[in-house]
Design a protein around this nucleic acid. Structure first.
Lengths: 346, 346
DNA sequence: GGCAACGCTGCACAGCTGTGCAGCCCGGCA
DNA sequence: TGCCGGGCTGCACAGCTGTGCAGCGTTGCC
């Protein structure tokens, strides 16, 4: 049995509640609640007294308790696998700003360390929406969200099984893969490779597949390298292995981070000239790809578009039909692919 | 007046509650609560029925409601200014993993878009601790945390005013600044500059001050550049301005991101050779600084140490005395500073 | 002066969970 | 058979907020 809380005692490692404020202001607790509810009926004089007392005590409305009443909470669960990845972190930065602007709160979870089971913990906090930036999509989580009326937004994730409702936001992965292939072909490459991570996310697979089929249309075989996580080191390993013997003259990294690993290893470890000896092309257009130290030619998926679409999905009411949005892609020409041989060839 | 919830109706955009589970399992709501409380008294048979019902409905304990009862919540507020910054994002990645391992949840806030007032919103969610990775520390927030028994962890932030309790985790900023100065002096630099961002965070100022005073001990004047945010572009601008006229032979960027902007601009835009014509040294040791495209010599503050200390502070009980920890720094030698002239000079 | 209307206030309940306490049932023992 | 103890169970309350409703006082109008 806890002792009753001392009236107006010193703050003792405990959050200030509306009752504390009511006691100090000499009103009922309801009045305190109304003073913090826009449009509620309180006399101007009472409100002033209450706000002064709240200020003095350092009171803040308990949104956890408030959420018990509301239809939906203000919490949005955001799941990502590797926040130090340059594109993921740029996404997170943009998303957290956008959420803030809509007065939503971002509950972050790093899926790198957790099995699927851990993701369910987000639901314990009554998140209104779960946004998946990377990592696998466990079916059980989709089902759980549906049962609890929470929406799910999948960004560049595989399409969920039939009947599972989720908002899908996809980069033009296939189109981007074809763009990359076309560009390497224009550069006169005859012997190309594609580098994928071992964790075969569908988005990356789609990019690789489209690249390969576009190349095979042109009668060019493609060497496939698939191993390791989606990281810079994967690109390094791939370059070491693929470029050990001379011959390759073009590489497509399905992610900028991978492509940068390839690019740097080719240039600084293997002494190849890029783009003269080897053309390298990436996908994402992470901020650092534009740095003059890299000047990576890449397929850009607009971060602004992607964030806007994500916020649209988040704003949807619980029962709205699932949304499908494809982020447009375009080729960003920098310096890591040789200039087209003859401009008109296409 | 809301209509009463239909008994066992289809899930209708609403979170499943313990009552729903109780109804389906044919027990009282208390029994459901006990089934999810380790060590509570429930018969094995009832527990099995309850868990089955919970599984069928997709029930998850509402941690928001549970928090109303508990002494402290599981929520940790994390504030950062720019998550696409390579060092901040590495910090966030490590911190979110560590929090996950301790079963704490990370409530993220991007301070880039918000004034101090917005940070108070974290308290609305009853966070047990607020961690500041970057951005200014409003005094009002410190006071608010103290009044509500929430701890505060400041990472590389200015020491709060007298009487304000907060855990401080500091890199060896002064020591690092001296290390940078010593190293440039060893390289034989005669005319050096330091680049700080305009948002004068104390950590960055300390680094710069120590650098300058160490240089003045050696009779070397230092050009100071201070403008713009803490970003790559700031380094670019600084390099353009500082290196317009020849003469400078060493630059210290108080942040790796700034130093990389300087490095790349010097190399690729201004055609200078680094380190032959210009030595560049940074601070932080962000992952990308080690990439062969940069090979930035820098002062490293160990991310593992920093994260460990942060987690220690977070684990402290509310009433524990403030903690002070200095993260050790060391020079990481790569290729952006000229080799020492004569090894014994020091 | 009397009555109606209106603005403000507090009560009480809902929303969801954890838990002390009393009561129930069942089994064991004399 | 009667009594006691122990294991479960449900009740009721606490924890914090939002809000419908009734009541109170005041004001304005006739």
């Amino acid at each position: 049995m806890k002792p009753p809380r001392p009236p107006l005692g010193p703050p003792k490692a405990r959050f200030v509640s509306a009752s504390d404020v009511a006691r100090l202001a000499g009103v009922s607790r309801s009045a305190v609640s109304r003073a913090f509810t826009p449009g509620a009926q309180v006399s101007e004089q009472a409100r002033a007294r209450i706000l002064a007392a709240a200020e003095e005590l350092g009171y803040r409305v308990n949104r956890l308790a408030r959420t018990l009443h509301q239809e939906r909470s203000d919490l949005v669960g955001v799941v990502g696998g590797n926040f130090s990845n340059p594109y993921i972190s740029a996404q997170l930065d943009a998303l957290s700003k956008a959420l803030h602007a809509r007065r939503l709160q971002c509950l972050l979870m790093n899926s790198a360390c957790g099995v699927a089971e851990d993701l369910k913990r987000l639901l314990d906090y009554r998140v209104r929406t779960v946004v998946l930036l990377s990592g696998a999509v466990p079916d059980t989580l989709i089902r759980l969200c549906a049962q609890n009326g929470a929406r799910m937004v999948l960004i560049n994730r595989p399409r969920p099984p039939e009947g599972a409702r989720a908002d899908l936001i996809l980069a033009g992965n296939a189109r981007g893969g074809r763009l990359a292939a076309e560009r390497l072909a224009q550069a006169g490459c005859r012997n190309v490779a594609v580098v994928i991570s071992g964790s075969r996310t569908s988005a990356k697979l789609e990019r690789a597949e489209a690249f390969c089929s576009e190349m095979s249309l042109r009668g060019m075989p493609v060497t496939r390298w698939a191993d390791g996580p989606n990281s810079y080191e994967t690109g390094v390993e791939a370059a070491r292995s693929l470029l050990r013997e001379p011959g390759l003259d073009g590489i497509f990294g399905v992610t900028d981070e991978i492509a940068l690993g390839v690019l740097n290893t080719a240039r600084f470890e293997l002494g190849l000239r890029v783009p003269e000896d080897l053309s390298v092309i990436g996908f994402d257009d992470a901020p650092i790809s534009g740095w003059s130290s890299h000047a990576l030619t890449t397929v850009s998926q607009s971060l602004a578009d992607l964030t806007r679409a994500t916020m649209e999905a988040i704003a949807l009411p619980p029962e709205a039909a699932p949304m499908l949005y494809e982020v447009p892609v375009r080729l960003v020409e920098r310096g890591s692919v040789r200039a087209p041989l003859s401009p008109g060839t296409d």
